[in-house]
């Protein structure tokens, strides 16, 4: 690339980021959501490394210590559980499992569903028919129940929970991919590529996948919250994550036994689940508005109802 074209390329690169930040700032809810999610994401990555010891150290003198006091240090501001472990530290450590499982399940579902959808859409014929009947079966039944039945077959644990959650989400990606592929493969550039002698694999990878991928990523972002809720429900019912591993959902299940005496055991992890899901939903509805040309002006003008 010539030196002259360098600065011209950088300028439009910089502006979109500023523009996105500005649009985010305009919507205060979305801004708070983004800030909250950044903190949660930070703890999900570094949490166990920072407070891992604190989350597992027993302190029997602080059994079921109530929240709201910092007499025993900031770690116990949200109280302590039945074994005197800091709830705040456990929340931070659990965020890694909670978010990690959801992320892994969504990625797995996106990749498997996308691949199967490509086959069903591009190849069609009997493989396509088999794949579509398979998704019909998966979709004909409530996903949580399907996961329940399947999880009793496999040993519950991190790996199997991921697999089961991924399977229940595959149909969404599969159907979207197939629908898009059916349309894309009739387009002119695909025909042109075929006329020029490109093989099926090359056409799919070079011409079809780059168009389908952004749609799938968008769905995955919305799906993430849903999968997180599903994992929490499974762990709550006792068929998800098993001790010594724990997630926010498993913490609620544990706290349920102390509902009458120590409400904070079940309350905080549930609140963490709800706030994270809410933040994800707020952010995705903001993103939908910001990328929709017919709605975007609502963010760009100064809001008259603020005044």
């Amino acid at each position: 690339m010539s030196e002259a074209s360098g600065p011209v390329l950088i300028a439009p690169e910089e502006r979109p980021i500023r523009q996105v930040a500005l649009l985010l700032w305009r919507d205060k809810f979305a801004f708070v959501a983004a800030a909250y999610l950044s903190i949660v994401a930070f703890f999900a990555v570094f949490g166990p490394w920072l407070v891992g010891d604190l989350a597992t150290s027993l302190n029997l003198r602080l059994r079921n210590a109530p929240p709201g006091s910092i007499e025993h240090g900031w770690a116990f501001v949200l109280g302590a559980d039945a074994l005197g472990r800091s709830i705040l530290a456990r929340l931070i450590v659990a965020s890694q499992n909670t978010l990690g499982i959801a992320a892994a399940a969504v990625c797995a579902a996106m990749i498997c569903g996308g691949t199967l959808g490509l086959i069903a859409g591009y190849v069609g014929k009997w493989p396509g028919a088999i794949i579509m009947r398979f998704t019909d079966v998966l979709m004909s039944f409530p996903s949580l129940l399907l996961a329940l039945v399947v999880l009793f077959v496999f040993e519950p644990g991190v790996k199997n929970v991921i697999i089961v959650l991924a399977i229940t989400r595959i149909p969404i990606y599969l159907r979207t991919t197939r629908a898009e592929v059916l349309e894309i493969r009739e387009r002119m550039f695909v025909t042109a590529a075929r006329v020029m002698g490109a093989g099926s694999i090359r056409i799919v990878l070079r011409h079809v996948v780059p168009i389908v991928a952004p749609t799938l990523v968008t769905i995955a972002a919305i799906d993430f919250a849903l999968v997180m809720l599903a994992e929490s429900a499974l762990s709550f019912l006792g068929v998800g994550i098993q001790p010594p591993e724990f997630t926010w959902g498993a913490m609620v299940a544990l706290g349920r036994n102390y509902l009458g005496s120590a409400w904070w055991l079940a309350f905080w992890p549930g609140l963490a689940i709800m706030l994270t899901t809410l933040a994800l939903n707020l952010l995705s509805s903001w993103a939908r508005m910001a990328t929709d040309p017919t709605q975007r002006w609502r963010l760009e003008i100064t809001d008259k109802y603020d005044g």
């Binding site: 809810f29 919250a225 809720l229 929490s232 429900a233 709550f236 959902g249 609620v252 706290g255 349920r256 509902l259 409400w263 079940a266 309350f267 549930g270 609140l271 689940i273 709800m274 899901t277 809410l278 994800l280 939903n281 707020l282 509805s285 109802y305």
Partner: peptide
């Protein structure tokens, strides 16, 4: 805006936790 936030919160709430808080 009130309805949007309430409905989003509703769609985000883990039902088992709402049930537990309700009992509480």
């Amino acid at each position: 805006r009130t309805a949007s936030v309430i409905s989003l919160a509703g769609a985000s709430a883990p039902d088992f936790w709402v049930a537990i808080v309700g009992i509480l």
